[in-house]
């Protein structure tokens, strides 16, 4: 058993070439232990979504390696072969694009269940319904097409679909940014419950409140580089880097107080 469940070593991602060259991620290293919730925080365009896609096996890194259970994830253009594929799942940012408009929530989840459990239609639908119910989606809503569901409901269906594979790691790319406050709270509580069940979560967000609520460790990203990383509480109470201070000071209310005080001191 490797020390880390998921590990990124010196990962860089470059898009385009010549004058249109964009370095989205520069030499980032990250570790995730089993059952641990970690966060990647940064402003829009800082490269955090790209890094999440690399971790999910959707974007081949230009440089560096990703290891899952000590095994390299990318082999040529292929990623997560065999059993490992099931274990790392992702929830996407846009709830409106993350569900196939042609399939009902139930069908979308049941399809994933059927393929992973190799069961028949009835059994997979039963398990899918169970998963959806756990996510707070009633049977009546499960048989609706995505266009009839709210953003929060869609996002919970996406989580149910990701969980249908029985993953050990869940990558959540800004899962709360496109849904309203009450739906956010509901989703975050769901994530809490999943953590209690032993799932490891990588939460990518620009919402510092969400990061503080859910994660134990956090990586602060700016322009494709990790500027600071460490225990979430420590970083929130005692930010070292100028960028982290600015980021934290921008939170209105109590959460940003420590950072604002620190900034004023300097």
């Amino acid at each position: 058993m490797a020390e880390f469940l998921l590990e990124a070593k010196n990962v860089s991602v470059t898009f385009g070439s010549g004058s249109t060259k964009v370095e989205a991620v520069k030499n980032c290293s990250l570790t995730l232990r089993s059952g641990e919730p970690i966060g990647i925080v940064g402003e829009s365009g800082s490269g955090k979504s790209t890094l999440a896609r690399v971790l999910a096996g959707l974007q081949v890194p230009t440089e560096g390696e990703i290891y899952f259970n000590g095994e390299p994830v990318y082999k040529g253009s292929k990623s997560y072969t065999g059993e490992a594929r099931r274990q790392v799942q992702m929830v996407f940012q846009d709830p409106y694009g993350s569900l196939n408009p042609q399939l009902t929530g139930l069908n979308a989840v049941a399809e994933a269940v059927r393929i992973h459990d190799k069961t028949n239609k009835e059994e997979s639908e039963n398990r899918a319904l169970k998963l959806l119910r756990r996510m707070g989606i009633a049977e009546l809503d499960a048989i609706k097409k995505p266009r009839q569901l709210s953003g929060g409901q869609r996002q919970r269906v996406s989580v149910a679909r990701a969980l249908s594979a029985n993953p050990t790691v869940l990558l959540a790319d800004e899962p709360t940014s496109a849904i309203d406050q009450s739906a956010q709270a509901q989703l975050l509580n769901l994530f809490r419950g999943l953590l209690d069940d032993g799932l490891s979560i990588v939460l990518v967000s620009h919402d510092l409140g969400v990061i503080r609520y859910l994660t134990k460790r956090v990586y602060v990203m700016k322009d494709g580089v990790f500027v600071e990383s460490g225990i979430t509480e420590e970083i929130f109470n005692d930010p070292r880097e100028e960028y982290t201070k600015l980021l934290l000071a921008s939170i209105p209310g109590e959460l940003g107080v420590a950072a604002r005080r620190k900034l004023n001191k300097i």
Binding site: A56, R85, Q89, Q93, G97, S98
Partner: peptide, 26 residues
Amino acid sequence: KQGYVEAARTLGFSKKRILFKHIIPN
């Protein structure tokens, strides 16, 4: 580039299934 196609990839669906069930109908 839609989330459901990427999700189908992370779920390990076969290329054929992704093409005929998730991409072509849309």
